[in-house]
Design a protein around this nucleic acid. Structure first.
Length: 937
RNA sequence: GAGAGUGUAGCUCAGUUGGUUUAGAGCAUUACCUUGACAGGGUAGGGGUCGGGGGUUCGAAUCCCUCCACUCUCACCA
């Protein structure tokens, strides 16, 4: 069978995924092997695959495939979450486009639409993951709102409530007026935005009491005014008119009027600064600092809220910052968390002037029904007209927006359900601090601890319909929590008697936060809230792979849930991936349009190419600057391996050893590659342990490209038109096979294809189900010798290039006779290998310097290359001098160490010995170089 | 404001408890080669006083101090 000239990723990928599925390689059932389980971070059920998913899931697939090759029982559970806010928003938008308002529908009708939507778009993302090669156990696909998961969510709520770790409370919450629901702190994104600080003056209410000083000034002004008037020139032009006297009275009057204005302002007005003038209608106090001398005289006074004329107390509270703004603060307890606290301290009235949809309500008295931002402009204009707007100061401040809808979050006072986090956080914190749960990279431990130390209660109710409806029923002002309405009824009857019926109970309208389902994921996917069954085998899961951006939203909460219900950790390792960024380091975003289409990438470069591209630039936990060029490199790599396959498969095989020399060369090459393979396996092993996957990827890339294709195959490649012996051929196939298994986790498709092309395979023999090779012993001396011969080959090639000789033109070479040279070339096949790879006509031992040669040193051996052209003596001298200088400098640094007694005494013997070897080598090398130089002179 | 992290070649990054050459890789770049697996190739080369300064040590990219630059997280003063 003839192999295609180029590797075709599309054909291959279309072939192998269905094959793996058919063979059920992804499916896992508990058995006596060690379990390796991973749960997918559930994407939104209606989401589409983006770069973040690709990175995250490629990593999980690599870990799962590696575990499978290591003989573990690998189980990767896929699934999606219902994404309460996002999905409901999408459904509402779709209905609106059809002219249907959510408010016109019953809860049941709306949910019907939502499920239709979910069925239509749901799970698309999971199909896209298959394109990437994700080897999930699809039979286990879970959804946060399916029956199994829902049952556990409800049970957990009831359990927490009964344990007193869940409560309903009135709090200032983050309200999203667009989605019309509350958000947890973690769902609010803060960012600096330009706005204004409005300086507004409030009239002070003195309760009719007059200022004596002002009254005195007023009288004075009146008097002076009269005087000024009397000094007016007479109309007939003959009256008394002393200009200088007149002017002095005029000045006096101006001064008095100014003084009056100032005193009057200070006495009658108080200026505050605010970002939100539209909330003044909810003001119930003005606060100043108790130690502020500017306002000390206002004790016990009241102020009048502009536009609506409400009289509010002027209060004194430490919270106020004297330095900021005017040092006076309007207090609006309904619309600011800090103001609410002040309100509690001073028993202030709470006047909520903003409706759930962000418009002003009737309590605002003015501009009712106008949106809060429109109202801001209207109120500003009103204040300006009324003379209350003193100044407008440009100001940058942090604004919180909803993560899902982008709407500016409105602080709002409301009754919500909370999890008492302090009661459940402790074991989850300890686990991470003691590395029972290990974070990769470690630095996230700090972030985690900081959040856990300052943990706040978790608001879990959402004013939505799409989600798990809260299992709480109300009757007669009391709440009854149970898994079913019947349970709740029983509780109600215990309290109020049997006359209470199901119809009397009213279930809480709200649903639970989506994260309240996902925090159970590591065991809920195994239906494992209760012990027994599969959960005992798969839980705790082996590793969680996720982005650091959801460390609080998800990771920390899963840890808490794990300890709360399973009594132990949910995962042993957490590997945090970085964010995918564009080559300029910017976040991928829809608005920037810098996010490549994930499926298009797979289309263009193949899943293997994309996987390689993502992994090669993905430092453990660091952000990755994604460039499609890397995928190109991945695709090229697939082709490179394909070409190597074509090479080997193109060889004619001889059942007889071809020549003795070639047999020795091939055996030597095989021994070397085997040793190198062991080295790579050891490195790869430790890199996998530390999740340094980009290093695993690059090590294999370099090894296959360089050592395998560049050296090994070139060495064993038979001369043009000649066959290769059977043993060497089989050996090459075996190496190739091992390499495919090693690379399989990273590039599953191309490796599976080549693995099958290498040999005839029986049914059930597949790369995905093969065994990961194990490292053998490493002979360091041998490897060093092989490096020397490679170095010699390179140096001869360099000489060819410098002297413009063809790479295949045979050269006569000599090696300086020495004991070490003899030993070196006694290694079977070494001489023949050198001759073949450097295209030598001859290699002869010599004691004299042969005529017409240039020389070089490799290791400690001196080589001569005969050139049939005049040697540029000056150039040679320069080259040797340069090398001599370097070696001398090197020797000096080594000598320095060795002549230092403290080094010799304190450093480990191994280090000292190594330095002595370096010294000896350098001395020998210098001698050789100097000799050459002398001869040239 | 509090905390954390980063700074090594043109770019992206390794450098695994301080000692394997006077610091490595990939990409990019330069020169040359290339009818025989592969131009998505081969061979060879150039390129870094490891952010600056100081200290500890026989020895520092690595540990400590300090300064500079950038990034992130949390909390926010109206």
């Amino acid at each position: 069978m003839k192999l295609a000239a180029r590797y075709n990723s599309k054909e291959t990928e279309a072939k192998w995924y269905p094959h793996w599925m058919e063979k059920k390689y992804f499916a896992s059932k508990p058995d006596d092997r060690e379990a390796f389980s991973v749960v997918i971070p559930p994407p939104n059920v209606t989401g589409v695959l983006h770069m973040g998913h690709m990175l995250n899931n490629t990593i999980q697939d690599i870990l799962i495939r590696k575990a499978r090759l290591d003989g573990k029982n690998a189980c990767w559970v896929p699934g999606t979450d219902h994404a309460s806010i996002a999905t409901e928003a999408k459904v509402v938008r779709k209905l609106r486009a059809q002219g249907i308002k959510k408010g016109d529908l019953s809860r049941e009708e709306f949910l019907k639409h939502a499920w239709d939507w979910t069925d239509e778009y749901g799970g698309k993302i999971l199909l896209q993951l298959r394109k990437l090669g994700a080897s999930c156990d699809w039979d286990r696909t879970a959804f946060t709102m399916d029956d199994t998961r829902s049952k556990q969510v409800i049970q957990v709520f009831v359990d927490l409530y009964n344990k007193g770790k869940l409560y309903r409370g009135l709090r200032m919450v983050n309200w999203d007026p667009e989605a019309q629901t509350v958000l947890s702190n973690e769902e609010v994104i803060h960012g600096d935005e330009d706005s204004f600080l409005y300086h507004l003056r409030y009239k002070i209410d003195h309760g009719g009491e007059e200022s004596l000083e002002l009254a005195r000034l007023a009288r004075q002004i009146k008097q002076v005014k009269r005087t000024v008037a009397s000094y007016k020139p007479l109309s007939n032009g003959r009256g008394v008119y002393n200009k200088s006297t007149y002017n002095s009275f005029r000045n006096q009057l101006a001064k008095l009027e100014k003084e009056y204005a100032e005193k009057e302002a200070a006495y009658n007005w108080l200026t505050i600064a605010t970002k939100r003038p539209e909330t003044i209608m909810g003001d119930t106090a003005i606060a100043v600092h108790p130690d502020d001398p500017r306002y000390a005289h206002l004790k016990g006074k009241r102020a009048i809220v502009p536009l609506i004329g409400r009289s509010v107390p002027i209060i004194f509270d430490d919270y106020v910052d004297m330095e900021f703004g005017t040092g006076a603060l309007k207090v609006t307890p309904a619309h600011d968390p800090n103001d609410y606290e002040i309100g509690l301290r001073h028993k202030l009235e709470v006047i909520d002037t903003i409706a759930d949809n962000g418009t002003l309500n009737e309590k605002a008295q003015i501009h009712i029904g106008k949106d809060r931002f429109e109202a801001r402009d209207l109120v500003k204009a009103d204040l300006e007209a009324a003379g209350n707007l003193v100044r407008l100061e440009p100001y940058q401040s942090s604004i919180g927006r909803s993560e899902r809808t982008g709407a500016v979050v409105e602080p709002k006072l409301s009754l919500q359900w909370y999890v008492d986090m302090k009661q459940i956080a402790a074991p989850a914190l300890d686990a991470v601090m003691t590395d029972e749960i290990e974070f990769f990279p470690k630095k996230y431990k700090n972030t985690y601890r900081h959040w856990m130390d300052n943990i706040r209660d978790w608001c879990i109710s959402r004013q939505l319909w799409w989600g798990h409806q809260i299992p709480a029923w109300y009757y007669n002002g009391e709440v009854f929590v149970g898994t079913t309405a019947a349970d709740a009824l029983k509780l109600a009857q215990e309290k109020f008697g049997n006359q209470v019926t199901l119809a009397d109970l009213k279930q809480d309208e709200d649903v639970l936060d989506t994260w309240f389902s996902s925090w159970l994921w590591p065991f809920s996917v195994f239906d494992g809230l209760e012990a027994g069954g599969e959960v005992d085998y798969y839980y705790p899961t082996s590793v969680l792979v996720t982005g650091w951006d959801i460390i609080f939203l998800w990771v920390a909460r899963m840890a808490m849930a794990g300890y709360e219900w399973k009594g132990t950790l949910p995962f042993k390792h957490v590997y945090f991936t970085g964010m995918v960024r564009d080559p300029q380091g910017r976040k991928m975003s829809k608005s920037l349009g810098n996010s490549p289409d994930a499926l298009k990438l797979i289309e263009d470069y193949g899943a293997d190419g994309v996987r390689f591209g993502m992994m090669s630039c993905s430092p453990a936990g660091g952000d990755l600057l994604f460039d499609t060029k890397l995928c190109e490199q991945g695709a090229a790599f697939s082709n490179k391996m394909w070409q190597a396959l074509r090479l080997i498969k193109g060889w004619e095989i001889s059942e007889q050893p071809v020549t003795e020399d070639l047999g020795k060369v091939n055996a030597l090459a095989a021994k070397w590659l085997d040793q190198r393979l062991s080295q790579i396996l050891l490195e790869t092993d430790s890199n996998f342990t530390e999740y340094r996957l980009s290093e695993v990827t690059m090590d294999l890339y370099k090894f296959i490209f360089g050592d395998f294709c560049g050296w090994y195959l070139e060495i064993i490649k038979p001369p043009y038109g000649s066959p290769i012996d059977r043993a060497s051929y089989n050996q090459a196939i075996e190496f190739f096979e091992q390499l495919m298994t090693m690379l399989h986790p990273i590039m599953p498709f191309v490796t599976e294809e080549i693995w099958h092309q290498l040999k005839e395979r029986k049914d059930g023999e597949d790369c995905i189900a093969s065994q990961y090779p194990k490292a053998g012993n490493i002979d360091a001396v041998f490897l060093k010798n092989f490096e020397t011969v490679k170095d010699t080959i390179s140096k001869i090639r360099e000489i060819r290039q410098k002297n413009q000789l063809k790479s295949y033109e045979p050269l006569k070479t000599f090696v300086q006779a020495s004991e070490s040279a003899t030993t070196f070339f006694e290694i079977a096949g070494m001489k023949e290998l050198l001759q073949k790879m450097a295209a030598l006509e001859s290699l002869t031992f010599t004691t004299e310097e042969p005529a017409n040669t240039v020389n070089f040193i490799s290791g400690t051996e001196k080589f001569y290359v005969e050139l049939n052209l005049t040697i540029d003596v000056e150039a040679e001298k320069e080259r040797i001098t340069k090398e001599l200088e370097y070696t001398k400098g090197f020797l000096i640094s080594v000598d320095k160490k060795l002549s230092n007694e403290r080094f010799v005494n304190n450093a480990p013997a191994k280090v000292v010995e190594n330095e002595r070897n370096k010294q000896a080598d350098a001395v020998a090398k210098i001698a050789i170089l100097e000799e050459s130089l002398t001869k040239l002179n």
